[in-house]
Amino acid sequence: MDECGWVSEVLEEETRKLKSTMLIANETFEKLTALDNQNEYECCTFKNCDFSGGNLSATKFIESEFIDCNLSNAKLNETSILDVQFKSCKMLGIQFDMSNPLLFSAIFENCQLNDCTFYEMKLRQAEFTNSSLEGADFTAADMKEVKITGCDLSNANFDRANLEGADFLMSVRLQIDPELTRITKAKLSMSQLPGLLSKYNLKIKG
């Protein structure tokens, strides 16, 4: 195949992709169990939807909201999550690090995020409030000044993460190795200090 023929095929494929992508805006969806992926959802609301184990890859969610939804183990390969709020959602085992790294800003409130992966992600535009993050992997993530307040952080991994100025107030079961993690100016309560010193096997008395 000559060069012109190859270029023509590439352009046709890109045109096909553009035609198959729909922009859906200002809609409310309730009790869905599947979603056409690769579409763009802008200013949409999803309520009581069950997308667990579903394929949401290459989909764009912009300024949208998920309320009381189940997204556990959903596939988010190259998914864009921009200014999205998740409220009271079940989101177990999601590999957020497979999503679009350039378009990720989200607020998680009262969510179950156990065993989720945020490996090497830029999370400065993320916020976690009153959520369960048991076993979550934040290894090498950029979390400067991120808010993780009122959360359960049992067995969450922060090794090599940038936690400068991060707010952990009211969160419980926090364990951080200061020798492996940048925690300058992080906001911590006195009750969280044992989680920074556990590797030294010290006995701390109040």
Rank of each mutant, 00 (worst) to 15 (best):
Y41V: 10
Y41R: 10
Y41N: 12
C44N: 04
T45C: 02
T45N: 12
F46T: 03
F46H: 09
N48C: 01
N48G: 02
N48K: 00
N48A: 02
N48S: 04
N48M: 02
C49L: 01
D50K: 02
D50S: 09
F51A: 04
S52Y: 02
S52D: 04
G54D: 14
N55F: 06
N55Y: 03
L56F: 04
L56N: 09
A58Y: 08
A58D: 13
T59H: 10
E63H: 04
E63D: 09
E63N: 09
E63R: 10
S64T: 00
E65P: 03
E65L: 06
F66A: 06
I67C: 07
C69F: 03
N70E: 01
N70T: 00
L71H: 05
S72L: 03
S72H: 04
S72R: 01
N73I: 12
A74F: 15
L76H: 06
L76K: 11
N77V: 00
N77K: 07
T79V: 08
S80T: 05
I81N: 06
L82C: 11
D83H: 09
V84T: 14
Q85G: 01
Q85E: 08
K87T: 08
S88N: 15
S88R: 11
S88I: 02
K90E: 05
M91C: 10
M91A: 05
L92E: 05
L92V: 15
I94F: 06
I94M: 11
I94N: 11
I94A: 08
Q95D: 11
Q95M: 09
F96H: 13
F96P: 07
F96T: 13
D97R: 12
D97W: 15
M98D: 15
S99R: 02
N100W: 07
N100G: 03
P101N: 01
L102A: 11
L102Y: 14
L102T: 15
F104N: 03
F104S: 02
S105V: 06
S105C: 13
A106Y: 03
A106F: 00
F108V: 07
F108Q: 02
N110G: 00
N110P: 01
Q112R: 08
Q112S: 00
Q112E: 01
D115E: 14
D115W: 08
C116W: 05
C116T: 13
F118W: 10
F118E: 13
F118S: 12
Y119W: 12
E120M: 02
M121F: 14
M121D: 08
K122M: 08
L123V: 07
R124V: 14
R124C: 13
Q125E: 11
E127C: 07
E127N: 01
T129Y: 15
S131T: 06
S131R: 04
S132N: 10
S132F: 03
L133A: 11
L133Y: 15
E134A: 15
E134W: 01
G135S: 01
A136T: 13
